[in-house]
């Protein structure tokens, strides 16, 4: 990522800002949203030839549909949303890392 340092800087400032206006639950929500909905899809899309901005945008908006769709369906099978969330997260992040290594 060409603008990794800039993106990390903005993320840290945004997190501090959210903490300032919405305290700890706000910060936890913000970080959880980035972690669940953006990171796994970002790692997968990183395999393909998109710009940094495209990867960030696509990963977030695909993440809010696909990540939770997988969690919902898996939790129907195993009966726990928390466990499904952890499993889907690990599998998608693992897939992203695998695709990156394979490249």
């Amino acid at each position: 990522m060409k603008h990794l340092r800039l993106a990390l800087g903005i993320l840290i400032v945004a997190a501090a800002y959210v903490f300032m206006i919405l305290s700890l639950p706000g910060l936890r929500t913000f970080l959880a949203a980035m972690l669940l909905f953006m990171l796994p899809t970002y790692l997968i899309l990183d395999r393909y030839d998109f710009t940094d901005g495209e990867k960030l945008m696509f990963s977030f908006f695909i993440g809010i549909g696909v990540f939770s769709a997988l969690v919902y369906n898996l939790s129907l099978l195993i009966g726990s949303i928390r466990i499904s969330m952890a499993l889907v997260f690990v599998v998608l992040v693992g897939l992203g890392i695998y695709l990156k290594l394979k490249r």
Binding site: G26, R28, T29, A32, A33, L36, F37, S68, I81, R82
Partner: peptide, 22 residues
């Protein structure tokens, strides 16, 4: 999926209301 997003954030956000609105 839309509502599942909020359920997940309620769990990880540690709050019943704020994650949904935020």
């Amino acid at each position: 999926p839309y509502h599942m997003n909020f359920a997940l954030l309620q769990i990880l956000g540690g709050h019943r209301f704020l994650p949904v609105f935020f």
